[in-house]
Amino acid sequence: MTPGLAAGLRRWGVPLVWLGLLLLASLGMAELEAVFRWLEPDSREVIYRRTEFLTLLGRHLLVVGVASLLAIVAGVGAAVLVTRPFGRDFLPLVAQFASMGQTFPPVAVLALAVPVLGFGTLPIIVALLLYGLLPIVRNSLAGLQGIDPAVHEAARGMGMSRGQVLRQVELPLAAPVILAGVRTSVTINIATAALGATVGASNLGDPIISGIVNGNTAYIVQGALLIGLLALTVDSAFERLLGWRRIRFR
C-alpha cells in the first residue's frame, strides 16, 4: 500500500466504515428478515419491497443534495453580499430572514408549498432549502465577520482588490466556520427530507410513512436505520474535512 493511500485511509476511515454499513444495509436488508419478523410477528410482509432501498437512497441524496447546494449558494452568497461595504445595510434583514426560515416548521412549509408547487419533489426541496438556510447564513456571517480587522486592513493596504481579498483571504479564513454550518444544515436536512414522502416525493421516508399508515414497525425501523446511517456517513465525512482544514492554519 502506498503511503498516500494509507494516509487517505486513516483520514477517511470512519466515514468509509459508515458508508460501507449504509450500502450493506441498502442491498442486504432482506437478509435481516428474521430480526424484523421478531419485531413484527403478525404482518404478512416484514421487508419493504415497493421500491429498491438503493433507489430510495439515491432519490434521498438527490433531494438533500439539490436543496443543500441551493442553500449553500444562497446562504454564502447572501452573507458575502451583506458583509461588503455596499450591502452592509441589509445585514440585519438577512440575519432575521434566515432565523425566520428556521422557526418555520418544514411541515408547515410543505403544507403551504404543495398547493402552489403541486405534489412531488419540488415542495420538499423548497422546505429543505428554507430550513437549511439559517445555519449556513449564520456561520458564514460569523466566519466572515470573525476575521481579524488587521488582516483586512493589511490586505487592502498591500493593494489587493476587493475581489482578491474575498477570494484569497476572507473565504479561506472563514471556510472552517462556513463548513461547520453546511455540516449542520446537511445533517438536519437528511433527517427532515423524510417528510417528503408525505407529499409524494419518493425517498427513504417512504418506508417510514408506509409503516405508520399500515402499522408496520419493521418498515419504520428500516427507513430510520438507513436515514441514520446516511446522516452518520455524511456527518463523519464533514468532521474529517473540518479537522483537516483546522490543522492547516490554526
Binding site: V151, A154, A155, M158
Partner: peptide, 16 residues
C-alpha cells in the same frame, strides 16, 4: 498601494 510599503502595529499577516 502596491508601490507604497505599509506596516501596521498588529502586523496583519495572513494566518493561512
Amino acid at each position: 498601494r502596491r508601490r507604497i510599503g505599509y506596516v501596521i502595529q498588529s502586523t496583519g499577516l495572513f494566518p493561512h
